[in-house]
Amino acid sequence: MASINYAFKEISCKIVFYGPGLSGKTTNLQYVHLKIPAKSRGELISLATDQDRTLYFDFLPLDIGKIHGFSTKFQLYTVPGQVYYNATRKLVLRGVDGLVFVADSQKSKMDENVESLQNLADNLGEYGYSREKIPLVFQYNKRDLSLLNSVEELQQALNPKGYPHFESVATKGVGVFDTLKCISKLVLDQAKRKELFPDRKMEVVEADKISPERTPSPVATAGQATEAAILSPADAPTPTAQTTVVEEETVPVAEKRTTPREVAQENEPEVGLKVEEVPQKEGDPMVQPPRQESPTVISWSAGKSGKRAKGRGFFLWRLLNKLLNR
């Protein structure tokens, strides 16, 4: 989770590049390290094997400078992509504030992409993190190779919920900064909502709930235009981002409340309770089976969900007792 230091007026956020082996996660960081001026970044640290495969993580600190009085820092991490290193991969996810899923666009790699995405969901689940609360951006890498899956196929298989996505050629830098800018903005928006402005009422809704006229324009088109100028115009990626954060959005609540206490909790905007209506979609690898049981998910915390179940049980138990006493 983000570290917010009011004494030093400093925010530090952790962004993790996830994805299957050899999809280009480290290459993303290497390109960022190469292009960002030395005053705004630290050294790129790679804990790699002798064959230059990531063993534990790559780490690149970025100093964005002051944003509205707060010195803002990002820590970019990659995970080891190979299936074998799941133990270390899971450790890197600890305290993650934002995720970039780097998928390999080649047809032959589709199964590995799906498996890695499922592994991400599993590992987040093991930490008790709610997938819906962590900003996520997809990057479809290696768009310059032949025998590729189309973006539509990749979207259908990996991103049916329509998180922001970018096409990229990480070795040439195409799409790298667009991805980074998008995830940075989502992460800081979230940090701001949670800690800097706790009295601000905001809701996160699904992308498909945003009406077309309210959908913000794609992020980082300026960066893409510059990249297109560096490469050939034909290589310019199409801006495809859809921002999923909407301010002051009200979301219908379909589920019936059972106790007054829960209703009271619902009515307190300061505590940051988010109600998200998640339409059931088959084949979405990010949604874990237990969460598909109900079409409405109340995003609160594990503890509160527990109390909710306990509350219902208690109510039924009292009802049963009353009947038996009669």
Partner: peptide, 19 residues
């Protein structure tokens, strides 16, 4: 919040524009 968003956009533009 609104000032934060504007400030954030411009900083990210500066730093993440292609060098």
């Amino acid at each position: 919040g609104s000032e934060f968003s504007t400030s954030l956009e411009s900083r990210l533009d500066d730093i993440f524009s292609e060098q």
